[in-house]
């Protein structure tokens, strides 16, 4: 017995570094493309510039952050509001679709999931621009809406919050559908039989069994939609107006037009911090760690 234990120990010691070895490409990647950029970002956010086109110099310039907070409240608010509504909309649209494919798709499942992804082979920009022709004032959709009584003559979708939210929802929808589908796919649907057997109506079975078990997918999908949506600026650029601008619009302009790298960096960091906080609260609230089956 003693000999066995010691040989086990030896084996353990020998393989001790193997996991780290296997992880090293990932760690290297993270350090190189996440940690280093974030540190540069922090450094830039605390820098000041001697003149407009000078390179930022590190100087503990905390005022960049106050500027981020004081000047761009509406853009931050809209970013989170629009991203939030887009996320909820994506759940409302994506969940039933994923559910239908997972339960009714049969042998067409893979094809159907493929179809969900197909539009996303087109570039994001092109898809967004295509929406402008879809939602144009004199387009099919608007003409149908205008045919409804009591719709005001100047009702429109382009250059409105609805247009931006619609675009965000559409552009990130597949990021909601795929994880939900995967989590639904993993559910043993005999559990719904068990629920029905235990006097659960189909709705109760869904609410008490399928929905909670698919929450990891909803959680993952929400993050995948909310995070990029909150930082997005293209949907506002093409489907919005000056009054629907989001924080991404500001960051983009600060970086590329105004060359105000420090404030742009500060804005990015604030956005990152708020999102991280929201994600933590959200995960706490959903308590997904206990759902792992």
């Amino acid at each position: 017995m003693a000999a066995d234990t010691s040989s086990d120990d030896r084996g353990l010691r020998k393989g001790k570094w193997a996991p780290y070895g296997l992880l090293s490409p990932g760690i290297l990647w993270l350090v190189l493309f996440f940690l280093v950029p974030v540190m540069i970002l922090v450094r830039t956010a605390l820098s000041s510039k001697a003149s407009r086109f000078a390179n930022p110099e590190f100087s503990w310039q905390f005022s960049n952050f106050t500027s981020a907070f004081t000047d761009y409240g509406p853009q931050f608010a809209r970013s989170f509001l629009f991203a939030g509504i887009a996320t909820v909309s994506a759940i409302l649209i994506g969940y039933p679709l994923a559910y239908w494919i997972a339960t009714q798709g049969g042998r067409w499942k893979n094809l159907l999931i493929g179809l969900v992804v197909v539009p996303f082979f087109t570039s994001y920009l092109i898809r967004t621009i295509a929406w402008t022709s879809l939602l144009k004032d004199d387009g099919v959709i608007l003409n149908v809406i205008h045919a409804i009584p009591f719709v005001p003559q100047d009702f429109r979708l382009l250059a409105t919050p609805a247009g931006v939210i619609g675009g965000l929802t559409y552009n990130f929808l597949s990021f909601m559908i795929l994880p939900i589908y995967v989590s639904l796919e993993k559910i043993d649907f005999r559990l719904t039989e068990a629920a029905a057997d235990l006097y659960g109506t189909p709705w109760q079975a869904f609410k008490k069994v399928v929905l909670p078990l698919s929450m990891p997918g909803v959680f993952a999908g929400s993050l995948l939609v909310f995070i990029p949506a909150a930082g997005d600026y293209l949907n506002n650029r093409y489907l919005g107006s000056p009054k629907t601008s989001m924080i991404g619009t500001v960051v983009q302009d600060k970086f590329l037009v105004q060359f105000d790298y420090p404030v742009a960096a500060a804005l990015s960091l604030v956005l990152m911090a708020i999102i991280t906080t929201m994600v933590l609260i959200y995960s706490k609230f959903l308590g997904t760690e206990g759902l792992a089956v």
Binding site: P37, I227, G231, V251
Partner: peptide, 13 residues
């Protein structure tokens, strides 16, 4: 174009 959201800052830098 590719620089959405969080990635915007670090990537640009």
């Amino acid at each position: 174009l590719a620089l959405g959201g969080l990635a915007l800052g670090p990537a640009l830098l």
